[in-house]
């Protein structure tokens, strides 16, 4: 093994990842080459130094800021963003609640319709009913025998005084 080939194995030797044959060949070379032996020791020292380098942690709030950006990318509406951020089981509950509200609304409308149609049939029979009381035909803005009725009657006859 020459020095060039040995140099290619220095990193693997320092990190202990050489195969048996490479390890033996390099060892034989290092025993006879003081220059390469010194270079390997330098590599070992540098490796220790590099591993002592600090690891920088992500700044506080990193994930919060990132997820805000990602939710904006997804096009979720800002005001109701929390709805889209819900886990799937909560979304199912949310859908069930909306379905329940819609069902109750439809049911209430059906109930009212029934009451109205029932009221009309009663009106035909001359009985007081919900529709009768709500109908404009039955609204009398000036009750008979009232002061206003007398005034209007006099006006129609040309005898306001």
């Amino acid at each position: 093994m020459n020095c060039k080939r040995a140099g290619e194995l220095f990193a693997g030797h320092v990190d202990g990842v050489l195969g048996e044959s490479e390890k033996e060949a390099l060892k034989a070379h290092l025993d006879s080459c003081r220059s390469c032996a010194a270079a390997v020791e330098g590599q070992r020292h540098a490796s220790v130094l590099a591993r002592s380098a600090p690891r920088f942690a992500a700044p506080k709030g990193f994930s919060t800021r990132l997820m805000r950006e990602i939710r904006e990318l997804d096009g979720a509406p800002g005001l109701f963003g929390w709805l889209w951020a819900m886990p799937p089981h909560m979304k199912l509950l949310e859908a069930a609640a909306i379905a329940l509200v819609v069902f109750m609304g439809v049911h209430s409308v059906g109930f009212l319709s029934e009451r109205i149609s029932g009221g009309q049939s009663m009106a035909v029979n001359g009985e007081a009913s919900l529709v009768a009381s709500m109908s404009a035909e039955y609204l009398d803005p000036v009750p008979p025998e009232s002061l206003a009725d007398m005034y209007l009657t006099a006006g129609e006859n040309g005898n306001e005084n």
Binding site: E8, F10, A11, G42, Q43, H45, A46, L49
Partner: peptide
Amino acid sequence: SRAREELR
């Protein structure tokens, strides 16, 4: 290898 040499 080169990076470690340079770092040293």
